[in-house]
Design a protein around this nucleic acid. Structure first.
Length: 553
RNA sequence: GCGCCCGUAGCUCAAAGGAUAGAGUAGCGGUCUUCGGAACCGCUGGUGCAGGUUCGAUUCCUGCCGGGCGCACCA
């Protein structure tokens, strides 16, 4: 929060200075954390950029600018923001926050989000976005696979963070409840059911072979004797969907605001309407009996045109997908963000092309592509095939490794990171998961609170001189910035990394600064206050990641 | 063959073009009569290769090497 004010104040000052120099104003005042050897809180690299444009010496520019920044103030607060602003080679300005600024920021961090409309981390200046975030959307033809854990973590954590930032976000799960895969599910169940009844059956060639199919067939009601594959399809989809909801929402704590069924589109004739709209816009043509979208003729960069309606008259999956996205936009969303595995990345340009062809502004559609998780058991790669039934379920992993360990583990990784995930290690050595490192600090602080309670010591605002305490205060100020980075990167991993760093700073403080001390009530009070801030941010940050913050471990 | 992603410490990963590349974990050596040893402190260990752009490159560009994933009138 204080850093947002600082950035704004810096930007004003830099813009004024730039105008005097005949430069265009910088778009943003970029501030960076400093490396350990630098005795400051933050650094401003702007002088080096300005020096280039002005063809002047960077350090000279930094010196000139630093002098102007010393007494920097913000209209939102009534104290000076900085204690010092010093030029440093090759052309940084190193900033040290004022004590008032740090104390004020701690108070903001400790404010109760539930009470106000401006919780810590909320960004009043950011333009509000209306986002539909779709993720997982696994076919209801089998249990939720471990491979979905990454997308589920990404989507759920990101949606929580974006909401905290003040955006309107609705999460959505698209259910492919019609089509070939679902038919195959019905035929597989039909065959397994017949087997159970000792009747002759023909198991479909590409059918689903997993044991769960047999188990599911065994659960079919008595009247299933008279069912054909379509009835088994319906039965199977409903059962699978129920299991998906249970695994994702109850087990993995991933919430979807809407479970949208493809069949809803067919019922509403949405495919016809979308096709008609594209036709009117002149974006489709017929060739060789099929209807094509002129997707290569767009800015989206699709390399070829795509079939919407096959020569036999059946619509492609692509068309229903377009209709689905059109439906989301009709519901008022301005941005559609889909989270897809890297195995679908080739689908991005055509989807973008379709959105463009429908006349929506560029940037309406965005795909977050996450790299696939390669599963191992020890050294051995796990092949995953739903049809062969060889896979590890999400439930299996969570029940063995623990929810917190799983969610934090995936949250730490950038979507672009290719990762090898050793299931044995995850199950066996869950103690090594960094999440415990973070949770431990939270539990430790609450232990301090319990100790303070015994001596009737209470938190009180106050300043902090010790370097370890000051480092914590500065780190607390970075929390909103971490959330901002999450929004920019469209990933929760900057927050997870931040929590690791914050936690790492607590222990040195703990070792050097005795908190509970009945001979120093005032110091105890201000240190308890700092502890409260750290605990609050850890609990808050972990909750944004869907991870618990236990008071005892 | 073309396209997208990646290659960073033994392992799993960070790092808005910024300073001496950070964490966790593993390894080695220390720290236990006070708030939690699931801890702390110290040491060891580094950007695949070759060029280029830049005051400055893990980051951008080119080429190479290695890996993952795509390239349907499948979903």
């Amino acid at each position: 929060m204080i850093l947002a004010h600082l950035r704004k104040a810096l930007l004003r000052e830099l813009a004024a200075w730039a105008a005097e120099q005949g430069l265009s104003a910088p778009e943003e005042a970029l501030i960076n954390p400093v490396p350990p050897h630098v005795p400051a809180d933050l650094s401003l690299p702007y002088p080096m950029q300005a020096a280039k444009a002005l063809k002047r010496k960077p350090l000279e520019v930094a010196t000139e600018l630093a002098a102007r920044l010393k007494d920097l103030r913000s209209p939102e607060v009534d104290f000076p923001l900085l204690e010092s602003a010093e030029p440093a080679p090759p052309g940084f300005i190193n900033l040290r926050l004022s004590e008032q600024a740090l104390v004020w920021n701690l108070a903001m961090a400790l404010g109760r989000p539930a009470d106000g409309d401006s919780p810590y981390g909320f960004d009043p200046d950011a333009p509000k976005r209306a986002i539909n975030l779709e993720f997982v959307s696994a076919n209801p033809t089998g249990p939720v696979h471990v491979a979905s854990a990454r997308a589920a973590t990404l989507g759920d954590s990101l949606s929580r963070i974006l909401r905290r930032r003040g955006h309107g976000v609705r999460t959505e799960y698209y259910v492919n409840d019609v089509g070939r895969q679902v038919e195959l599910l019905g035929r597989s169940l039909h065959a397994r059911f017949a087997e159970l009844k000792g009747k002759p059956s023909e198991f479909p060639e590409d059918g689903y072979h997993g044991e769960y199919i047999k188990a599911l067939a065994a659960e079919a009601p008595p009247e299933a004797e008279g069912w054909g594959p379509p009835e088994f399809s319906r039965f199977g989809v409903e059962r699978m969907l129920t299991a998906h909801r249970r695994d994702l929402e109850e087990l993995f704590l991933v919430r979807f605001d809407r479970w949208f069924r493809e069949s809803e589109l067919h019922d509403a004739k949405a495919l016809d309407r979308t096709l008609e709209k594209l036709r009117k816009l002149g974006r489709v043509y017929e060739k060789e009996g099929a209807v094509w979208l002129g997707s290569s003729d767009t800015e989206a960069g699709d390399d070829k045109d795509r079939v919407l309606v096959r020569a036999d008259g059946r619509p492609t999956y692509f068309l229903s997908d377009i209709a689905y996205h059109e439906d989301k936009l009709a519901r008022g969303f301005k941005e559609l963000i889909d989270i897809w595995g890297a195995d679908h990345h080739g689908y991005v340009p055509r989807m973008r092309a379709a959105i463009e062809a429908l006349g929506h502004p560029p940037g309406t559609f965005h795909a977050i592509i996450h790299q696939l998780v390669h599963l191992f058991r020890g050294k051995e790669a796990v092949k995953m095939s739903k049809r062969a039934g060889e896979f590890v379920t999400l439930r299996e992993l969570v029940e063995e490794a623990g929810l917190d360990a799983c969610r934090f583990f995936f949250a730490l990784r950038s979507p672009n990171a290719h990762m090898n995930f050793d299931i044995e290690l995850a199950k066996k050595q869950s103690q090594e998961n960094p999440v415990y490192y973070v949770q431990y600090v939270h539990a430790r602080i609450h232990s301090i609170f319990r100790e303070a309670e015994k001596h009737s010591l209470r938190t009180s605002p106050g300043s902090h001189k010790e370097p370890t305490a000051r480092a914590l205060l500065v780190k607390l100020a970075w929390f909103p910035e971490a959330l901002r980075n999450c929004e920019r990167e469209l990933s929760p991993h900057p927050l997870a990394s931040y929590l690791m760093e914050l936690s790492g700073l607590f222990h040195p403080f703990y070792e050097q600064c005795r908190v509970v001390d009945t001979h120093a009530i005032e110091t105890s009070g201000s240190r308890l206050n700092l502890c409260a801030g750290v605990a609050r941010i850890i609990a808050d940050g972990l909750s944004l990641l869907g991870v618990s913050a236990p008071e005892k471990m």
